[in-house]
Amino acid sequence: MLSETRAAERPHKIPESVLVVIHTADLQVLLLERADHPGYWQSVTGSKDHPDEPLAETARREVLEETGFDVAALGTVLHDWQLANVYDIYPHWRHRYAPGVTRNTEHVFGLQLPSALTPTLAPREHLSWLWLPWHEAADRCFSPSNAEAVLQLPRFVAAMTP
């Protein structure tokens, strides 16, 4: 969430964002229900605050804002999956972007937690949360790029395991 002052400084969202798949070692995935569209479930997402904000910082900030999980305090590490999705911004959300902006580039990260922790939600952003096995979580995601990222989770976790 941006403060009102910062929002006034940057009236339009930057069309470059992160998607953070939060999961456990046994492939349970955290999903959040959007407050502005009840029934729409997703992983942590969010746009850069400013054009030169590093993507890893965007991901850390969004995880903290949306779940209350402090990556550094938990001793966890964000993993940049080196995946980027370019997609059309849903028409009902285009008003958040500058006129004529219709596409967003989304960078995918993974965050493995030590267990299925209880998030502290930002009430203006999310109504509820749940942990699901990865294949069920993929089915629940409203966004095709989010569902695809969750389906890739076993491959990325296997690559990180020695």
Score class of each variant (00 low, 15 high):
Arg6Met: 09
Arg61His: 10
His135Glu: 13
Arg103Lys: 11
Gln28Val: 07
Ala84Tyr: 10
Leu19Cys: 09
Phe109Ser: 12
Pro162Asn: 07
Leu55Asn: 13
Val101Gly: 14
Leu130Gly: 05
Ala137Trp: 00
His92Trp: 15
Leu113Gly: 03
Ala158Asn: 04
Ala7Pro: 03
His95Thr: 10
Val29Gly: 01
Val44Arg: 07
Val157Ala: 03
Ser145Cys: 07
Arg10Ile: 00
Leu153Glu: 00
Val20Cys: 05
Pro133Ala: 10
Ala7Ile: 05
Glu4Ala: 15
Ala59Tyr: 04
Trp134Thr: 06
Gln42Pro: 03
Arg6Cys: 07
Pro99Trp: 13
Glu57Ile: 06
Ala73Thr: 12
Val150Thr: 01
Ala73His: 08
Ser47Phe: 04
His126Lys: 02
Val101Leu: 10
Ala35Arg: 06
Phe142Tyr: 15
Lys13Asn: 13
His107Arg: 10
Gln42Phe: 08
Leu113Gln: 02
Met1Arg: 03
Lys13His: 13
Arg155Gln: 09
Thr24Cys: 06
Asp26Met: 10
His23Tyr: 06
Gln42Asn: 11
Glu66Met: 12
Ala7Trp: 04
Ala147Asn: 15
Leu27Ala: 10
Glu57Pro: 00
Asp49Met: 08
Tyr87Gln: 14
Thr67Gly: 01
Ile22His: 00
Phe69Gln: 01
Pro154Tyr: 14
Ser47Pro: 01
Arg60Leu: 04
Val63His: 08
Thr76Lys: 01
Trp41Cys: 00
Arg94Asn: 07
Arg60Gly: 00
Pro162Gly: 11
Ile89Asn: 12
Ala25Asn: 07
Pro38Ala: 13
Asp26Tyr: 14
Glu57Arg: 09
His92Met: 15
Glu66Asp: 15
Pro11Arg: 05
Asn104His: 09
Val150Glu: 03
Arg6Ala: 09
Glu33Ala: 05
Leu113Asp: 00
Val20Ile: 09
Pro11Glu: 13
Pro11Thr: 02
Gly39His: 01
His95Ser: 13
Phe142His: 14
Leu83Glu: 13
Leu19Tyr: 06
Leu27Thr: 12
Thr120Trp: 10
His135Phe: 14
Leu74Gly: 04
His79Met: 11
Pro38Thr: 06
Leu74Arg: 08
Val71Asp: 07
Ala35Ser: 15
Pro119Val: 09
Met1Val: 13
Glu148Asp: 05
His92Ser: 14
Val71Cys: 02
Glu125Met: 10
Lys48Trp: 10
Val150Trp: 12
Ala116His: 00
Glu136Val: 07
Val44Glu: 11
Leu83Arg: 09
Thr24Ile: 14
Gly68Asp: 01
Gly68Cys: 03
Leu151Gln: 08
Tyr40Arg: 01
Glu9Met: 11
Val18Phe: 01
Gly39Asp: 00
His23Ala: 12
His135Pro: 10
Thr24Val: 13
Pro15Ile: 04
His92Lys: 13
Val21Tyr: 12
Leu55Val: 08
Gln42Gly: 04
Leu130Asn: 02
Ile14Ala: 05
Pro11Trp: 03
Leu111Gly: 05
Lys48Phe: 03
Arg103Ile: 07
Ala122Val: 11
Ser43Leu: 08
Arg34Lys: 06
Arg96Ile: 11
Asp88Ala: 12
Gln152Phe: 15
His107Ser: 09
Glu148Phe: 07
Lys13Gln: 10
Val77Trp: 05
Phe109Gly: 12
Arg61Thr: 04
His92Phe: 15
Glu16Cys: 08
Asp139Val: 05
His135Arg: 14
Leu132Gln: 05
Val77Pro: 00
Arg34Ser: 08
Ala8Phe: 14
Glu53Met: 02
Leu78Ile: 02
